[in-house]
């Protein structure tokens, strides 16, 4: 478990950045979370998380894509880095491992 510690929101945002692939920036991440998970996350929280993820090296970013809505300001576009992908994978594996160890439900009669 070397350093792949991710918070819950961090994990979520990291996944969304991966899903959005090249189109991930503050607003789109927030929108995507809302659409996919039905959960409203404050935009400033997203920014904080994105910055933290970048510090940890899970995402990388570049400036680009000015639109009229933004008053001509550019977005900071995030994309998943290799270690970020590895981190998601690691987390997923860990979850799966844990999931597999769940005892079967009591009503499951298959084990007699």
């Amino acid at each position: 478990m070397k350093g792949y510690h991710l918070g819950e929101l961090e994990e979520l945002v990291l996944l969304i950045v991966g899903i959005l692939d090249q189109e991930a920036y503050g607003v789109s991440v927030a929108e995507e979370i809302k659409n996919q998970m039905g959960r409203k996350v404050n935009i400033s929280a997203i920014h904080t998380v994105l910055n933290r993820l970048e510090e940890k090296g899970f995402v990388k970013s570049h400036m680009g894509g000015a639109t009229e809505e933004r008053g001509g300001r550019r977005k900071r576009l995030f994309s998943l880095s290799a270690s970020g992908r590895a981190a998601i994978h690691e987390v997923k594996m860990a979850r799966n491992r844990l999931y597999d160890q769940l005892p079967p439900l009591a009503l499951d009669f298959s084990n007699g």
């Binding site: 920036y25 503050g26 607003v27 935009i43 809505e69 933004r70 008053g71 300001r73 977005k75 900071r76």
Partner: peptide
């Protein structure tokens, strides 16, 4: 500033 302000504007128009 640029990204934050841009996002804030975008949210505003949305």
């Amino acid at each position: 500033l640029e990204q934050i302000q841009g996002d804030a504007y975008e949210m505003f128009y949305m």
